[in-house]
């Protein structure tokens, strides 16, 4: 049963996912083009700095690509079922929770595809460049970070996309509105009530908690360097 779910998900997503896999494979190779030292350099010198700086411009593309992969896989999970008003899914003799779990599992397996493509590309990229002493390539770490980012994006969007468009709009809208109200009004109200909150902006605090260590979205902004000290 799971194999069927996986196959159908692949059929749904492959047109979107294959270009992303090609991009994931190519990105590490592109990022090291024109970089590299002569070998045998003994100290952390200009070449090393040039390599690190050269990689810097590519970093946002890695997290963006991971996020895009997660989005494509998640949205395709429910796409056909939404189009058919879930009539087919609901007529199958399988509990709804199990069906959702199989869908989620199939999507999770598919997140491996771009991650493996990136892992292969990263290893090739690492092998194609001679690194000065003090610098190391981290293709495995990069691929794991890439996979984790896809999974995070996928998990969030899978849950959101499972509902109807109306439900998704409600949840998103309510979330944004709550943050907005907290930011504009709630801050003064709460600060008036709780001394500990004085001088703290709740909205800024919440956003910081989301994307800074150990926030759940920190992974998007972390260290995406294939080559580092």
């Amino acid at each position: 049963m799971f194999r069927s779910v996986l196959y159908v998900h692949w059929k749904q997503v492959h047109l979107g996912l294959i270009p992303l896999m090609v991009a994931a494979f190519s990105l590490p190779l592109l990022s090291v083009q024109g970089l590299g030292g002569n070998g045998g350099v003994t100290s952390f010198n200009d070449t090393s700095l040039a390599i690190i700086q050269g990689l810097q411009v590519w970093l946002p593309f890695f997290s963006a690509l991971a996020a895009a992969s997660g989005v494509v896989i998640a949205l395709s999970s429910w796409n056909w079922d939404h189009q058919l008003n879930h009539v087919y899914a609901l007529s199958l003799p399988v509990p709804r929770w199990r069906y959702a779990l199989m869908k989620m599992g199939a999507g999770a397996v598919l997140t491996l595809f771009p991650a493996v493509a990136l892992w292969v590309g990263a290893h090739l990229a690492a092998a194609s460049i001679v690194l000065p002493e003090g610098l190391h390539a981290y293709p495995n770490a990069l691929a794991i970070r890439f996979l984790a980012t896809i999974l995070l994006t996928y998990a969030i969007l899978f849950a959101m996309a499972a509902g109807t468009v109306r439900t998704t709009m409600w949840v998103t809208g309510t979330g944004i509105l709550t943050l907005f109200i907290l930011g504009l009004i709630g801050n003064d109200l709460l600060a008036g009530q709780f001394e500990v909150l004085r001088g703290t902006h709740i909205l800024e605090w919440a956003l910081a908690k989301l994307d800074w260590v150990p926030g759940p979205l920190e992974i998007f902004l972390g260290n995406w360097r294939l080559i580092d000290v």
């Binding site: 159908v8 059929k11 749904q12 058919l84 009539v87 087919y88 007529s91």
Partner: peptide, 15 residues
């Protein structure tokens, strides 16, 4: 057999 076809349009019949 529902009122409107509920099969997945991108699959082949055998799939």
């Amino acid at each position: 057999v529902p009122e409107r076809p509920h099969v997945y349009p991108a699959l082949t019949v055998s799939e």
